[in-house]
């Protein structure tokens, strides 16, 4: 019969279940949660940064030209960025299309 146990021994846990490795949450991949992904039309983009601000998973990174590009490792496809873009520069595209 199946049983569920922990991912590591209690003896291996840090004191108080602390995490010693800074920024380890950055390893958590949320990019495999999505069924749609955002694509930005930089022709239309006015560089306002709302997509960067509203994205709950820190997907957007500002490039040298001042445009915001997606790091799809984290994009979970929620569509908030597309909804918030004031000039409709972001389109949600079906994965696999």
């Amino acid at each position: 019969m199946p049983k569920e146990t922990g991912i590591c021994s209690w003896k291996e846990l840090e004191l108080g279940t602390a995490i010693r490795q800074p920024g380890s949450a950055g390893e958590l991949k949320t990019g495999d949660w999505r069924s749609m992904y955002p694509v930005t039309d930089f022709e239309a983009c006015i560089k306002c940064g709302r997509c960067y601000i509203y994205c709950p998973d820190m997907v957007y990174v500002r490039n040298e030209q001042g445009y915001y590009e997606q790091n799809y490792y984290y994009c979970k496809g929620c569509g908030i960025c597309a909804h918030e873009c004031p000039v409709d520069a972001i389109k949600m595209v079906q994965e696999g299309d």
Partner: peptide, 12 residues
């Protein structure tokens, strides 16, 4: 830097 008091998922 360390993190004190992270979420304890059911796995831990």
């Amino acid at each position: 830097p360390i993190t004190m008091g992270p979420v304890g998922m059911p796995e831990v």
